[in-house]
Design a protein around this nucleic acid. Structure first.
Lengths: 337, 337
DNA sequence: CTGAAAGCGCTTACAG
DNA sequence: CTGAAAGCGCTTACAG
């Protein structure tokens, strides 16, 4: 990828005006180095993005990194499983990294990644800074984004689902059953996949001639708790909705809880529709009507793309959106009269 | 760990009566090697468990491998999360490997692992052959077993939970509510953790003076489907149980389904108790009474132990059993009269 | 197809 | 605290 010759200890040593052994000591954290020298060398190592290299040619390492913001939901398991199948196919393994901050990772993370080497990185709906994308590029680390947030440049490889279409379909399903007051719980407002689902919801209402009531649209965090809290909020509205499109399955389960706590039966008193179709959603009570997005397949594809890029291939197409499907089960029905 | 000097290309070359470059070619899959030579060299490489090594001292690689038999249940996510916290603490990453066969892995798996290097392996209720344990030892790869199956030698580090105690507690809870016909769905009969739960169930019945009816004890695979199937089997018995101890939470959800399909209400017509306390179990309907085992903590501990062994420490104690706790929610109640 | 020779990137003694 | 020298494990030309 990069035409530049790989930077070696010798280069750094020359530029710092010291010998190779000294640079080696800094890298290996030995104590016999003066603080000033250490400082200067560290600075240069960092600037050049030094990576320890052996005499050996560097082939694939057989590892793909899956980067999550958090590891909270069973949703992540579907992605791990898909990535693992694709990796196994290529005799590679999956490494799990968790950033533990929606705000973005510390910088260590990327340095460690580069030092340890990886064949590619799958970024799962996490927001990296453009500087971080730059670093990935600078170090020729292939990466693919799942559920892109629109931030990366248009040439970035990504895999997503037809979120807008899914939001539209879910809402139309509820409209067809006769609902007119339909609540919507989205995800974090900065996630593009959430915005798209909400926009699909809006489009369905508007094309059906139903007015969009902003007080019926809330943003959660895609976890059970916010489904529960926002479910209560929507159900305590004076003119409460007869149906809720919960934005994702976990939030739908939270809405189930809120409904039960208020003595409302699903679907008799309240219809609920999710998004994802997690394996457990069909065993929930009642079995959840939801929009299926092929999470396992998305991760499978993303991993294959990353592996392909690492082999020098150019993924075609560069951006993929897999289709979503409405799965009607028992949590949706006509509104109470 | 092993006092032997690391085997190098030069050693292999000498033993094979060829030069280092020739061995190097074999390793790197170059074509300019005669089939006989290749054969002989490969044989020796394999015998000696050759691992490519650089001039550099080999410190930690910053990776712990988590080995699952399958990646089916949200149960696995809890373990991944726990392992990830412990790894992060040590600036390491978690690598996920899935064997995809309860019978045991192919041999490639271990070879790839050794070639890529790892600081340690956590084996999650998978059965390795004693030959494979031997290989791990031969290559000085530290390993810790979660939910050991009793096979490994007594000096193997392991982390488990008090399964027998948990089975006892769950069953006593049901006995105290007044149940006398209590069904039991275990896991695979070759898993020690499942046997212990079943034995705890037996002990509770016996100490309460209730006869153990073998027709009430079934073995599943710890997934929803077998809870569903065996739930139906138990509920179609002539003198059907008034309560079922489902062996794990996923099977409990399957029993919920079976009960619903038969028009039985939980807990009014049937009490159900699980084992695990997965995060979703409290949002289930009804919220599941279950035996909590601290999966996240178990994986956290196991990972720390593996990391410690890789640093040359001896884990003390070598075998840990974390305690389980009964969590009473709404899926258990007195039997119908 | 094979290997002596040179080379690479790094580290390890060790002398100052 | 520093670096010239030697050494390590491996690979890359290249001559046979």
């Amino acid at each position: 990828m990069s035409g530049k010759r790989r930077v070696t200890i010798a280069h750094i040593a020359e530029e710092a005006g010291v010998s190779s052994p000294t640079v080696s000591k800094v890298i290996n954290g030995r104590s016999e180095v003066s603080p000033q020298t250490r400082k200067r060398v560290e600075q240069l190592l960092h600037e050049h993005g030094y990576i320890r290299r052996t005499a050996s040619a560097d082939g694939p390492v057989g590892m793909i990194d899956l980067i999550f913001a958090e590891l909270e939901s069973p949703w992540a398991m579907e992605l791990i499983r898909g990535a693992e199948s694709a990796a196994r196919e290529a005799e590679a393994s999956i490494v799990i990294s968790v950033l533990h901050t929606h705000a973005g990772p510390g910088r260590d993370w990327l340095e460690r990644l580069a030092a340890r080497r990886t064949d590619g990185v799958i970024i799962v709906s996490s927001r990296l800074s453009s500087q971080q994308y730059g670093q990935l590029n600078a170090r020729s680390i292939p990466f693919v984004v799942i559920d892109p947030d629109g931030e990366p440049a248009p040439d970035v490889a990504s895999v997503g689902a037809t979120n807008w279409q899914g939001g539209l379909t879910a809402t139309r399903h509820l409209l067809e059953l006769g609902h007119r007051r339909i609540g919507m719980i989205g995800g974090p407002p900065d996630m593009l996949c959430s915005r798209a689902r909400i926009d699909g919801y809006r489009a369905a209402l508007e094309t059906a001639g139903v007015e969009v009531d902003p007080s019926l649209i809330l943003n959660g965090d895609f976890l059970v708790g916010s489904g529960h809290d926002h479910g209560h909020a929507l159900l305590s509205l004076p003119d409460r909705p007869t149906a809720i499109f919960a934005g994702c399955d976990m939030q739908a389960f939270g809405v189930f809880e809120a409904a039960r706590q208020r003595g409302l039966r699903v679907p008799d008193d309240l219809s609920v529709v999710g998004f994802d179709d997690l394996p457990l959603s069909k065993s929930a009570w009642p079995p959840l009507t939801t929009v299926r997005q092929p999470l396992e397949e998305m991760a499978f594809l993303a991993t294959r793309m990353a592996l392909g890029i690492s082999r020098g291939e150019t993924p075609e197409p560069r951006r993929v959106e897999l289709s979503t499907d409405l799965v009607v089960r028992e949590s949706s029905g006509p509104p109470p009269r």
